[in-house]
Amino acid sequence: MSPKTAGPNAAAWRKIVDRFDDAVTPPANAFVRTNLFADGVAALTRLEVQVRRRIERQSTTWLHLFNLPTAGDIKRVRGQLSAVEARLRDLSEQLEDQGSVKRR
């Protein structure tokens, strides 16, 4: 029985919902612990990634034809920018630490 189950004086509709919940929840909770569920999640995720990549590949040819950047191009530039920003952040923190040590 779920912790949020209504008491004995609950309305009839609530008792029906709770009975449904009690019937459905244990097998659902058991199912998410199975290999079948794990395989299902993995398959759906990979499908999503494949569809996205296919769309990106097919749009790349056309966009480059008109000298326009693709999602992949933007992703690469963004990755380079992120690396630079992260390095800048690390250097700032190192300088800050050195400043703290000198002040002591």
């Binding site: 998410v32 569920f37 794990a38 999640v41 993995a42 995720t45 933007i74 963004r78």
Partner: peptide
């Protein structure tokens, strides 16, 4: 482990399958 984490634990999925453009 349960739920979606199980797929990761059992190697059905890798972190790189989940990561977006921000990393």
């Amino acid at each position: 482990t349960e739920g979606g984490l199980l797929a990761l634990k059992r190697g059905r999925l890798e972190i790189d399958d989940l990561i977006d453009d921000t990393g």
